[in-house]
Amino acid sequence: MPATSPLLAALGAQRLLPVLRSPDVPAAVARVTGLVEAGCRAVELTTSTPDWHLALAACRRALGDGPLLGVGTVTTADQAAAAVEAGASFLVSPYPAPAVRAVAAEHGTVFVEGGFTPAEVADAASRGPAKVFPAHVGGPRFLSSLRAVLPHAVLIPTGGIAVEEAPAYLAAGALAVGIGSGLPEDPAALAAVFGGA
């Protein structure tokens, strides 16, 4: 399994993982840049953004190798390969994805594999951080139940979670919470969330 410490350290510090679905490449670059300038160290773009691989490559050119820029909703080997080629620091799937797992292993890229049932989450967590999706279905109590039987698992609940609900998931044992919408647009408010200057 590739070393996950930089990603885990970043997520452990910021506690929220922005999951971006942007309408186009310029919007994606602007949003990622704003997040990084606000102090965010890890951001997830998704394959639902048109030309997402171009957006990732543009972000890499603009921001360099400092921030951890991942790609989510990766479900095929082709998507995984394109993400790695464009400079992805990590890959995320919404459900078990052996084809993505193979590409990530081949390139030494961190893979946050998704699952919902205890068996799926346990399997993903045996290899690295696991995405619990869709987390809102079970809520914090479900996450707490998973933590009880998987005490060493690194869990990242995502899906339908509002920013104000994140503390309950963190208290239930999440390393970080994936947030798809609701993060502040105002730079000062965003900096307050991610500890930037």
Rank of each mutant, 00 (worst) to 15 (best):
residue 52 W to V: 15
residue 52 W to T: 07
residue 53 H to R: 15
residue 53 H to G: 13
residue 54 L to S: 13
residue 55 A to D: 08
residue 56 L to M: 12
residue 56 L to E: 11
residue 56 L to V: 13
residue 57 A to E: 12
residue 57 A to K: 06
residue 57 A to M: 09
residue 58 A to G: 10
residue 58 A to Q: 12
residue 58 A to M: 04
residue 59 C to L: 12
residue 60 R to V: 13
residue 60 R to W: 03
residue 60 R to N: 09
residue 60 R to Q: 09
residue 61 R to Y: 04
residue 61 R to A: 14
residue 62 A to S: 14
residue 64 G to N: 04
residue 64 G to Y: 02
residue 64 G to D: 03
residue 65 D to Y: 03
residue 65 D to N: 11
residue 66 G to F: 03
residue 67 P to R: 04
residue 67 P to C: 07
residue 68 L to R: 03
residue 68 L to D: 04
residue 68 L to G: 03
residue 69 L to N: 05
residue 69 L to P: 02
residue 69 L to H: 10
residue 69 L to D: 05
residue 70 G to E: 06
residue 70 G to S: 11
residue 70 G to Q: 08
residue 71 V to T: 10
residue 72 G to Q: 09
residue 73 T to N: 13
residue 73 T to H: 06
residue 74 V to E: 05
residue 75 T to A: 07
residue 75 T to C: 11
residue 75 T to H: 08
residue 75 T to S: 10
residue 76 T to R: 02
residue 76 T to A: 04
residue 77 A to R: 01
residue 78 D to S: 11
residue 78 D to H: 01
residue 79 Q to W: 04
residue 79 Q to R: 05
residue 80 A to R: 01
residue 80 A to C: 09
residue 80 A to W: 00
residue 82 A to W: 08
residue 83 A to G: 14
residue 84 V to T: 05
residue 85 E to W: 07
residue 85 E to M: 05
residue 85 E to P: 02
residue 86 A to R: 06
residue 86 A to W: 05
residue 86 A to Y: 06
residue 87 G to Y: 12
residue 87 G to A: 07
residue 88 A to R: 07
residue 88 A to Y: 08
residue 88 A to E: 10
residue 88 A to P: 06
residue 89 S to D: 15
residue 90 F to D: 14
residue 90 F to Y: 15
residue 90 F to T: 14
residue 91 L to H: 11
residue 91 L to V: 14
residue 93 S to D: 13
residue 94 P to A: 11
residue 94 P to G: 09
residue 95 Y to A: 15
residue 95 Y to M: 11
residue 95 Y to K: 06
residue 96 P to A: 07
residue 96 P to C: 06
residue 97 A to L: 10
residue 99 A to E: 15
residue 99 A to K: 01
residue 100 V to H: 04
residue 100 V to P: 03
residue 101 R to F: 06
residue 101 R to P: 05
residue 101 R to W: 08
residue 101 R to L: 09
residue 102 A to L: 04
residue 102 A to E: 13
residue 102 A to F: 00
residue 103 V to G: 00
residue 105 A to Q: 14
residue 105 A to P: 04
residue 107 H to K: 04
residue 108 G to Q: 06
residue 108 G to T: 05
residue 108 G to W: 14
residue 109 T to D: 08
residue 110 V to Q: 02
residue 111 F to R: 00
residue 111 F to A: 00
residue 112 V to P: 06
residue 113 E to M: 08
residue 113 E to K: 02
residue 114 G to C: 08
residue 114 G to S: 13
residue 114 G to W: 14
residue 114 G to M: 12
residue 117 T to W: 08
residue 118 P to C: 09
residue 118 P to N: 09
residue 119 A to D: 11
residue 119 A to G: 05
residue 119 A to H: 14
residue 119 A to V: 10
residue 120 E to V: 05
residue 121 V to P: 01
residue 121 V to G: 03
residue 121 V to S: 10
residue 122 A to G: 14
residue 123 D to I: 01
residue 123 D to F: 10
residue 123 D to E: 15
residue 124 A to K: 01
residue 125 A to D: 03
residue 125 A to S: 15
residue 125 A to T: 07
